[in-house]
Simulated assay, not measured.
Amino acid sequence: MATIIYDLECDFAHRFEGWFRSAEDFDSQHGRHLITCPQCGSSSVRKVPSRINIGSNDQSRTVADTPANGAVSAGKPNTVDVATAFVMAKQVIQALVAHSEDVGERFAEEARKIHYEEAPARAIRGQASPEECEELRDEGIDIVALPNLGPDSSSLN
Rank of each mutant, 00 (worst) to 15 (best):
M1F: 01
M1L: 07
A2D: 04
I4W: 02
I5R: 10
I5L: 06
I5W: 13
D7M: 09
D7W: 12
L8Q: 04
E9M: 08
E9C: 13
C10K: 00
A13Q: 04
R15F: 14
W19G: 12
E24Q: 04
E24A: 15
D27R: 11
D27F: 13
S28D: 10
Q29L: 12
G31A: 01
R32L: 08
H33G: 10
L34R: 13
I35K: 05
G41C: 06
S42T: 01
S42D: 07
S42M: 03
S44P: 00
K47P: 01
K47W: 11
S50Q: 11
N57L: 13
D58W: 00
D58C: 05
S60L: 04
P67K: 07
P67W: 04
S73Y: 10
S73C: 07
G75Y: 00
K76E: 14
K76G: 03
P77M: 05
D81T: 13
D81K: 08
K90R: 14
Q91T: 13
V92C: 10
V92F: 12
Q94A: 07
Q94C: 04
V97L: 13
S100H: 14
S100T: 12
E101G: 04
E105F: 13
E105H: 13
R106D: 04
A108V: 00
E109W: 00
K113D: 09
I114D: 05
I114P: 05
Y116I: 11
E117T: 06
P120Q: 09
R122S: 04
A123G: 12
A123V: 10
I124H: 04
S129C: 00
P130F: 05
E131A: 05
E132I: 00
L136K: 09
R137W: 05
D138Y: 02
D138P: 01
E139H: 01
E139F: 06
G140F: 02
G140L: 03
I141K: 09
D142I: 06
I143E: 04
L146G: 14
N148M: 11
G150L: 08
G150K: 05
P151Y: 12
S153F: 14
S153N: 07
S154G: 03
S154P: 00
S155Q: 12
L156T: 01
L156E: 03
